Computed example of a mutant assay.
Amino acid sequence: MTMSYVAQIHSTFGDVEPRHILSLSGGKDSAALAIYLRDRIPQIEYIFHDTDKELPETYDYIARLEAILGKQIARTTPVDSFDHWLAVYRGMLPSNHRRWCTKMLKLKPFEAYVGDGPVINYVGLRADENRTGYISTKPNILAVYPFQDDGLVRADIIRILEDSGLGLPPYMDWGRSRSGCYFCFYQQKIEWVRLLEKHPDYFALALGYEEKAVQFGEQFFWCQSESLRDLAKPERVARIKSDWEKSQERKRSKRKALTLVETLGGLEVEDDSHLRDGCLVCSI
């Protein structure tokens, strides 16, 4: 722990010893931070907010991370399910303008787990990111950002994951860029296409939620301007794939050189700048 942390902790909590907690989303950054802090802060607690709407690859990744950490990862499954809160919100599905899913399924369980005692919450924002997110503002919780303080960027995070043997989350193998619920509204359209192809059962469940929403007086699309039923049409799938390939080719043509991690083994690492508006407690 750096001296700046010590001073910050003392000014916030005085001489009271806080708990050290790191929330895991199933994403690469929080997983890398857990490994990064494992030996630096032995007393740290790891928690995973299981919404029961995660991808199977996420559960697999958390289990593998737990083995590497050599320490149990606490699960903070909400008492009330997504479907319960959907009924409470009168069938209003969550969106980027009304993130009740994050509040009720992630933040509230986190605050219940933490309680009212002093806590340091370790957040996996990198030094090459410039974003804020949905983090608890309870006065007993102090958020700190080790990667930003130590100057670690995306390439460092990938190195930590590869060196540990954990690697990147397995859902990235088939083109999903973020952790979180399978129907997350922050997904790009190409990610919806990949969900359709890799997990058609989950795509169908997301489609079911979308089409039931109109029964509550609102036409809602997970993709904002396009229904999943239209997106799943073969000609539309082909167009989305084609547009995505063209955008990737433009990006590749502008790049001056490949990074080492991309060169080794041909690993393609996508830019994740589109994630910056997401919910930190869900996606890092």
Rank of each mutant, 00 (worst) to 15 (best):
T51F: 02
D52E: 15
D52A: 14
K53S: 11
K53A: 07
L55Y: 09
E57D: 15
D60G: 12
I62K: 01
I62N: 00
I62L: 07
R64I: 10
R64V: 10
R64H: 14
R64K: 15
R64M: 08
L65C: 11
E66G: 08
E66N: 11
A67H: 14
A67G: 09
I68R: 15
I68A: 11
L69G: 10
G70H: 13
I73R: 13
I73H: 12
A74P: 05
R75C: 14
R75A: 14
T76Q: 05
T76Y: 04
T77K: 12
T77A: 14
P78A: 11
P78K: 02
P78F: 04
P78C: 06
V79I: 07
S81F: 07
S81G: 12
F82H: 06
Y89R: 09
Y89K: 12
R90F: 08
M92Q: 13
P94G: 10
N96S: 14
R98A: 13
R99L: 06
T102L: 04
M104F: 01
M104R: 03
M104E: 02
L105P: 00
L105K: 01
L105Q: 07
K106Q: 08
K106T: 03
L107C: 04
P109E: 02
F110K: 00
D116C: 08
P118E: 08
P118C: 13
V119H: 05
I120M: 10
N121C: 10
Y122I: 06
Y122R: 01
Y122Q: 04
V123F: 05
G124L: 03
L125T: 07
L125W: 05
A127R: 09
R131N: 12
G133V: 02
G133S: 12
G133A: 12
Y134A: 11
S136P: 05
S136I: 05
S136Q: 08
T137H: 10
P139T: 11
P139S: 15
N140W: 03
I141A: 00
L142R: 02
L142E: 08
L142M: 13
A143R: 03
Y145G: 03
P146E: 04
